[in-house]
Amino acid sequence: MTITMYGITNCDTVKKARVWLANHNIAYRFHDYRVEGLDADRLNGWSGKVGWEILLNKASTTFRELSEEDRLGLGEKKAKALMLAKPTMIKRPVLELGERILVGFKPDVYQQAVRGK
């Protein structure tokens, strides 16, 4: 199974997840949103699995810097458009394990997911 981690290189949570994977000898590919971007099909797939509310990181600096107008009336369509325009609003990391995805990093969740692969 191919494992892909999505995020940005300077994110502390992404760094912790990458160290955890390396320490457990788990091979993965890293996809940096800032370098490679993110396409709508992938975002829609993630959203269909976990919901846009889980993916949108309202605590992110990028989200907090949005205008009041952009934050008002936030629904699925608007949230997805914002995440595509500014992928740093997506909670990090997103880990694809085949058809399954994990959002955020919790060592115990990663451990369980890797054992099940």
Rank of each mutant, 00 (worst) to 15 (best):
T4M: 09
T4S: 10
Y6S: 10
I8V: 15
I8E: 10
I8C: 09
T9K: 13
T9Y: 00
D12K: 11
W20P: 08
W20V: 13
W20C: 14
A22K: 08
N23P: 00
H24E: 09
H24P: 10
N25H: 10
A27Q: 11
R29I: 13
H31W: 15
H31Y: 15
D32Q: 04
Y33E: 12
V35T: 14
V35F: 03
G37F: 07
D41I: 05
D41R: 13
R42F: 14
R42N: 05
N44R: 15
G45S: 13
S47W: 00
K49E: 14
G51T: 14
I54N: 03
L55Y: 02
L55F: 03
L56K: 02
L56Y: 06
K58F: 06
T61N: 13
R64G: 02
R64C: 05
E65C: 09
S67H: 01
E69L: 05
L74K: 06
G75E: 14
E76I: 05
A79H: 01
A79M: 08
L82N: 07
L84C: 13
A85M: 07
K86L: 12
K86C: 10
K86T: 14
P87M: 06
T88F: 01
I90P: 02
R92N: 05
V94C: 05
E99L: 09
R100A: 11
I101H: 02
F105G: 02
F105T: 06
